[in-house]
């Protein structure tokens, strides 16, 4: 593919489910417009054509879990003007960071068949632990409208307009009756980063924190409330230990409930 003067975009995958980069292909109505505004230079899920770097925008999905990937992310950084991480794996280590809470030797002895075939690190870590990241977009998966907003903001040299407040704010704005107050359903909404549109409460279910911690979350206060509602310590720990388990506020909170 020949080079054009349009800014070019690359999409990189590390340990992940592909869901966040799929969000880009899920922008059905906008996909061809995006393709008109940027040159998609490297997006293996979509194309076998690749253009050598440097890249103006790199979207990075997934966490670092292997020695090879720990090297590769530096190559991506060197080739990129802006590096944006997308999703819970890239920003917090993802669900696979549950390994970070185990004694690695115990973990290996529990599950390894032929360790000589497999290379893996003892921890799953977010991209910012390895290289400088220009912007982090949260969510498991990311919200596709927010993804378009980030790309749009970069192309127009402005800051992405993405709120860092809680799911509660989104929930209230939509006039959803609070599931915790009205039904006594435990909900992580008060400490969870907005962006999903409060879909769980809208479906009568408590938020399970897939967008990770909001800015300055008061997790200990929420935990106290959950316990008053009768939630057991083990369930509380598991609630904080899911898709953003190793994000700092959620990790500290879950550890504070371990005996």
């Amino acid at each position: 593919m020949a080079r054009t003067t349009k800014p070019n975009l690359a999409v990189w995958k590390f340990a992940s489910c592909d869901g966040c980069q799929l969000s880009l292909l899920d922008c059905e109505e906008e996909l061809l417009e995006v393709a008109g505004a940027v040159e998609i230079a490297y997006f293996l899920e979509a194309s076998r054509a690749t253009v050598k770097g440097p890249y103006d925008i790199s979207l990075v999905e997934g966490s670092i879990t292997t020695p090879h990937d720990a090297e590769r992310i530096h190559q991506v950084r060197r080739a990129s003007r802006f590096l944006i991480t997308i999703g819970a794996c890239a920003t917090a280590g993802g669900i696979q960071a549950l390994r970070n809470f185990k004694d690695v030797r115990e973990f290996i002895s529990l599950v390894y068949a032929s360790p000589q075939y497999i290379q893996t690190l003892s921890k799953s870590t977010p991209i910012r632990d390895h290289v400088f990241v220009d912007y982090e977009l949260r969510g498991c998966p990311v919200n596709k409208h927010q993804l378009l907003e980030v790309i749009n903001a970069l192309l127009n040299e402005r800051k992405p307009n993405i709120a860092a407040h809680s799911v509660c704010s989104e929930c209230k704005r939509q006039g959803i009756v609070c599931v915790m107050v009205a039904q006594g359903t435990p909900c992580l909404g008060p400490v969870t980063h907005a962006g999903c549109g409060a879909i769980c409460p809208a479906y009568g279910r408590g938020c399970y924190g897939c967008f990770g911690p909001k800015e300055t979350p008061n997790t200990s206060s929420l935990s106290k409330r959950w316990k008053q509602m009768g939630v057991k310590e083990d369930d509380l720990i598991r609630a904080y230990r899911s898709f953003n388990a190793d994000s700092e506020p959620f990790r500290r909170e879950s550890e504070s409930h371990e005996r």
Binding site: A15, T65, I95, Q96, R99, V111
Partner: peptide, 23 residues
């Protein structure tokens, strides 16, 4: 890279299986 779902599903509630394995 392997992500070890079968390993960390151990100890989780049956209720969590659909949301965890979706990932």
């Amino acid at each position: 890279p392997p992500r070890f779902f079968e390993a960390f599903l151990r100890g989780r509630s049956y209720r969590e299986a659909p949301d965890i394995t979706a990932r």
